[in-house]
Amino acid sequence: MKLRLRIWRQPGADAKGKMVSYVIDGVSEDASFLEMLDVLNERLIADGEDPVAFDHDCREGICGACSLVIDGQPHGPQAATTTCQLHMRKYKDGDTIDIEPWRAGAFPVVKDLVVDRSAFDRIIAAGGYISAPTGTAPDAHSVPVPKADADAAFAAAACIGCGACVAACPNGSGMLFMAAKVAHLGLMPQGQPERHTRVLGMVAEHDAAGFGGCTNTGECAAACPKEIGLDVIGQLNRDFRKAAARAA
């Protein structure tokens, strides 16, 4: 199939960017979206142009590296699907596709479609863990965990840290990402001792990193490729209020 691509090109963090049009022909419907971009890049290299920079790695939907806003939607039109798992059979001959990077104050563009998501790492460093230095652990069966809690914790822990939630949010909030970790650890008995310091530390770092506030728009959950629900944000808010009251 033949497609017209309009891609955000920005040479560097401080450079001005713009949308640039490319026409690409002979795209296989069996190709993934990123493989379609590979084909475009091969052509650009042959023509002596700078290929389009984009983040990607595992290409099986789990590493969280790929991060494209496709026709205005983070990860494109297919629900519960990362960009790398989106395939070209979702498109038809003659389509025009807009491709942009995540756009959020806390995710500055590095080049073209690549953004800096290190703020997510800093949020985790501010409390998104359970302190269990190597060697200190008791036997794994010493603390049973109700299956329902373990399953709910797993569902929250399935977050791949891609940042689609931030890209989708009109406020550029990292609330869903942060709340998924707060919920995961807060649902496990091992996570209780640090439950309050965790949420306070993470929220402070989230705000300092320049993410916006949450206004319950719900775009984040709709964009999440791992279908993490808004309920984790409710959990975070409850924990935060309790922790803040205690600290006051």
Partner: peptide, 10 residues
């Protein structure tokens, strides 16, 4: 396994 459970691995 003990170590990972202590870390909260679900």
């Amino acid at each position: 396994i003990d170590q990972c459970v202590a870390q909260g691995v679900p």
